[in-house]
Computed example of a mutant assay.
Amino acid sequence: MTQTVPARGQDRPTLRDVAGRRATSTSARGRTRATLLLVGLAVGLVIAALAAAGSGQLVVPFDQVVGSVLHRLGLDLGSLPTHPRGESTLWSVRFPRVTMAIIVGAALAVAGALMQGVFGNPLAEPSVVGVSSGAAVAAAASIAFSWTFLGNWTIAVCAFIGGLITTLAVYALSRSDGRTEVVTLVLTGIAVNAVAGAALAFLVFVGDTQAREQIVFWQLGSLNGSRWPYVAVVAPFAAFGIAAAFLSARSLDLLALGERPARHLGVDVERLRIVLIVVVALLTAAAVCFCGIVAFVGLVVPHLVRMVTGPGHRVLIPASMLAGALVLVVADTIARTFVANADLPLGMLTSLVGGPFFFWLLRRTRRTAGGWG
């Protein structure tokens, strides 16, 4: 019995075929892992949101929270809250606050992912372009000088406008010969943040005792007092910014190859930076305008997600969105339930946890020779 030897170039697999199959297999595993991660984060977010809505001084059991939600959806498949004020508490106080936490966490995390992609640095965050400090100065000015031209919306609108103006100023000051160097942008942002810090200290000095307390409390960040009208204002801006981030995912992946290769592949690098910096300002200003400064979410969350998903922004951005929302829902739940009859400042809590964690990330990055980790 003779064995037929495949003719050369016909049935025998080449190195290119083997490499292609391996790449396809690796890509399939990566897609499966990304899908599992996104599904896991989405399920975790839903469970955390429902649990958060039932937590607080008035405890609503989890099954009753689920029953209330299903009832609002027209599905009477569960038990409604038995407490006389349970239903009104859920839909007038708890769910607006939980929804605001989801929006703010998602916006800050996506803004951080965009900043890290634009700068090519895992330690970049939205405050680099001055949006947080600008928002803080404008909000403090409205408090110190008792501005009330928009009623209860004055502080939020001033914070939003202040964040956008500061970001655009940083970008304008860092441009030279029609181009913007990343290092110049970062250094300009540091200088503007220093000036904003001095302005904020001056406003605290000139304000009365009540204004000082309000300014300090706003800087610490809190979701207390979130209501549906506030959610209706923040949600469209956050949705627009997140949608823009999704659309820029491919361009960010090409930018990660370097500016010159990205230009050769058709990416207008300067235009991309302008658009994304404005998007970051929009997302961050929308997040802080009602809630104050919430630190480290935009830095730590996308960095952690990148360690799991890798550098591809098509997975990184949606995963950061879900992870940021989940982190802030959990953090806000802890902030309002950790101490009885007290509502801890959310920014203080995220800084308390995020600071040591960020230090660990720095040490880990140093051990990996400054890579993404």
Rank of each mutant, 00 (worst) to 15 (best):
Ala113Tyr: 00
Ala172Leu: 03
Ala144Val: 08
Gln116Ala: 01
Gly151Gln: 11
Gly151Asp: 10
Ser68Cys: 02
His83Gly: 04
Ala124His: 07
Gly117Thr: 06
Gly163Trp: 15
Ala169Trp: 10
Ala107Tyr: 02
Trp153Pro: 01
Phe62Glu: 15
Ala139Gly: 08
Phe119Asn: 07
Gly130Asp: 09
Gly112Gln: 08
Ala109His: 05
Ile143Ser: 12
Ile165His: 10
Trp153Cys: 01
Val131Ile: 02
Trp147Phe: 09
Pro126Ala: 04
Ser79Gly: 13
Val93Phe: 01
Ala106Cys: 13
Val65Cys: 10
Ala140Tyr: 11
Ser142Asp: 01
Phe95Ile: 02
Thr167His: 05
Trp91Lys: 14
Gly86Trp: 01
Ala109Cys: 11
Leu90Tyr: 11
Val129Phe: 09
Tyr171Asp: 13
Phe62Met: 10
Pro84Ile: 14
Val131Trp: 02
Val104Phe: 04
Ile102Lys: 00
Thr167Ile: 08
Gly117Trp: 12
Val118Trp: 00
Ser142Trp: 02
Thr148Glu: 13
Leu173Val: 14
Ala139Thr: 03
Ser79Met: 05
Pro81Trp: 00
Ser92Glu: 06
Glu125Leu: 05
Leu73Thr: 13
Val104His: 06
Gly105Gln: 09
Gly162Asp: 14
Gly112Trp: 08
Phe145Val: 11
Val131Tyr: 12
Thr166Ser: 15
Ser88Arg: 00
Met115Val: 02
Ala138Leu: 14
Val128Gln: 00
Leu75Ile: 15
Ile102Asp: 08
Pro96His: 10
Gly134Phe: 01
Phe160Ile: 13
Gly86Phe: 03
Trp153Phe: 08
Arg72Gly: 10
Thr99Asn: 07
Leu77Gly: 11
Gln116Trp: 01
Ala172Ser: 13
Val170Arg: 13
Ile103Tyr: 02
Leu70Gln: 11
Asp63Glu: 15
Leu123Gln: 06
Leu114Gly: 14
Gly151Cys: 10
Pro96Lys: 09
Ile165Cys: 12
Tyr171Ser: 03
Tyr171Val: 12
Ala156Val: 09
Ala101Glu: 13
Phe149Asp: 10
Val157Leu: 10
Ile143Tyr: 15
Thr167Ala: 03
Ala159Glu: 10
Ala113Met: 03
Leu108Ala: 09
Gly78Val: 06
Pro96Cys: 12
Val157Lys: 04
Gly163Lys: 04
Ala136His: 13
Glu87Ser: 07
Gln116Pro: 03
Glu125Asn: 02
Asp63Met: 08
Ser174Lys: 03
Leu114Glu: 12
Leu123Cys: 07
Trp147His: 11
Gly74Asn: 05
Gly112Phe: 13
Val128Phe: 00
Val65Phe: 14
